[in-house]
Design a protein around this nucleic acid. Sequence first.
DNA 1: GGGTGGCATCTTTTT
DNA 2: GATGCCACCC
Length: 786
Amino acid sequence: MRTFALTDPPAGAPGAAGADDLRMAEELLGGLNERQGEAARTTDGPVIIIAGPGSGKTRALTHRIAYLLAAKKAWPSQILALTFTNKAAREMRDRAEKLVGAEDVRGMWIGTFHAIFARVLRREAESIGFTRSFSIYDSDDTERLIKELMPRYDVDPKRITPRMVRGRISGAKNQLVTADQYARLAADPFEEAVAKLYGPYDQALRRANAMDFDDLLGWPIRLFQSHSDVLAAYQRRWKYIHIDEYQDTNRAQYALAKLLAAQHRNIAVVGDDAQSIYAFRGADIQNILSFQEDYPEARTIRLEQNYRSTGRILKLADAIIKNNRGQLDKTLWTENPDGEHILVMEAVSERDEAQKIERTVRDLTVRGGLRWKDFAVLYRTNAQSRSIEESLRRGGIPYRLVGGVSFYQRKEIKDALAYLRLAVNPHDAASFLRAINEPPRGVGDKSVGLLRAHAAQHNVSLWDAARGAGAGLSGRAAVSVRGFIEAIETGAERAATAPADEVARDLLQASGLLRALRDENTPESLARLDNVHELINAVAEFAGAGASGRTLADFLQEVSLVADVDSLTDEDNRVTLMTLHASKGLEFKVVFIAGLEEGLFPLGQSTADPSELEEERRLFYVGVTRAERLLFLSYARNRFRYGESEPALRSRFLDEIEAEDVVRTEAGGTFQPNAGRYTLDDRAYDPDPAVESGYRRLDPHYYRRSLRGAHAAPQRGRPADGERRVEYDEGYGPLVTGTRVRHETFGEGKVLAVDGAGERATATVFFPSAGQKRLRLKFARLEVVR
DNA sequence: GGGTGGCATCTTTTT
DNA sequence: GATGCCACCC
């Protein structure tokens, strides 16, 4: 929650730096080591800082900013710093303030890519046909919109879910592939279905005066490309550009940075390829390599000394990442003591695992003098938090859960926000659909269907359709709709003059939402009512906090852009629970990584794809390097899945650790990794080209049955051309993603995914004739087509 | 139009 | 174990 001064930098340079200025600038770099200092001092021209975990990379970047200001190289408003979380931005700003003073930092542009460019878009909205108060759609809104479109374009939401479509469209947007281009590239029936929806989806967003997250990057690019004067203005403005966590940038972010840096070429990026964990949302490590191509004059600085962790933790991290290929060359080292051994804890169940964690936390606070906030428990999926929460609660240990269902994702909050968003942007279709019959006011599916038909027919928004009345609504529905519209319009009019929180309070009152919750009068509904009041308070706080005139529209755009980690502060003394992803950039004295089991971490089918497996491994690396002093790795031999307990096998990540005197068992013995249970790349054993260059599973215990199928007998030689028949009835075979199979009734299809084990092994197969099917291998008797 | 109860389907990770 | 969806009833 931060405002950026939107004034243009004063003309000219900020005056020549005197000797005093330069001395002060140098002093600011006093606390840095030689390398960090070099990174901070390299202010002119492109710099790429390749930095390991805990090496003070953000520190170096912040000092660089302070140095620029102190040495009078730029006005604050000429500095742009892009981060990946608001929290990182806030920390960077706070540290910069401490270095050079709040006064001299004001006006600097520090924020996430999304926040900064949302801001740019707000200023330039009209030139791309939006209004300033456009809505920002999260994945929920987006899926709603896609679902709306599906029947009209003859896509069956059972076969191809809105979520899948959203994923594909988002991926395409990250790669800067437009709807037209996508339609041309679509290669299979699934992609063709996506292609049918992509264009209309974009039009629907436009009609709703809304943007999705990817548009917040895509639209600025289009804006800059079509308005060279606008681009030139921003190129001039931002004399110095900084990007933190550069390994997480996607194509669109890369393109934006390149466009903006073209004039001054003062761009400093910081990244660690080993910590790239967001490929699933389009992050591309290649951007690090491209940087050196785009800026051949770029200076490369490596920060390899680690200040955070003990020697043993670092040794473990190194042993983990060594199992990945193609990591950039980097040697981590530290002057810190070796520290304690890393402990592996085996539990019989997830409940047992949670209790062990709870007990360990308690012991360490009593004996080790640690505080609750020194601990973090990290896990792969949000669902894992439940058991850990339970045991911490039972033990009376205060904790803080990051992620999961955050405040702004709760239903009542989304409903309330829908009203507020409509008042600001009445054409917002997703909000309209959410709010129109919440609370129930007699406008059900049928009436909404009529409005929708009317809107589609006249190519107007739902709002216009509803406002035009008529549309064939029944008398009762028409009255309700009119009341709804009036309430929103009243709110919209008042928004122009009254304070944002008053507008919000009155509008929610008029909506009937508050009354419905009060009338329901259950403990749950009253809790929800409290939440809505809390939202109103948040609006009040927001509107009051800013220097001047922060509007409801500003508030709404801000809340769409905050993540849950952002609210994390060091103030509460609580144990932190969060996903490994959310932990990036943070550090804790003691870290637990729970659920180190095959299928959970590495998760699901990621083991089938080498690049996905490597991303999982980097995620493990990220988790391990969050720890300063103590690290615990745990797994359970049984874990609940789909409501029933299922046996689990400890993660390959534990068995591939090769490090002397680093890891111990709880009993104090040496941890014995079962080396070679999984090995790298022995493609020679597999005649199937689909798994070429893949990791081969070799654990005879785990995969005994599949080995009997094909892998165990490569010496029999490849079958002659033609078909190879694999029987599945006594287990399941080496079926991997991409394999072509034939089914008795559906014909030929392509395997999209395989999950489950043994009896429950299930393949997701796409059949051109019948669409996507989930088939139990036990029954389906698939033939592999070669 | 709306509410309820049973059944299926999951489960990545997030700005 | 929770959410979503559908069928059925009021």
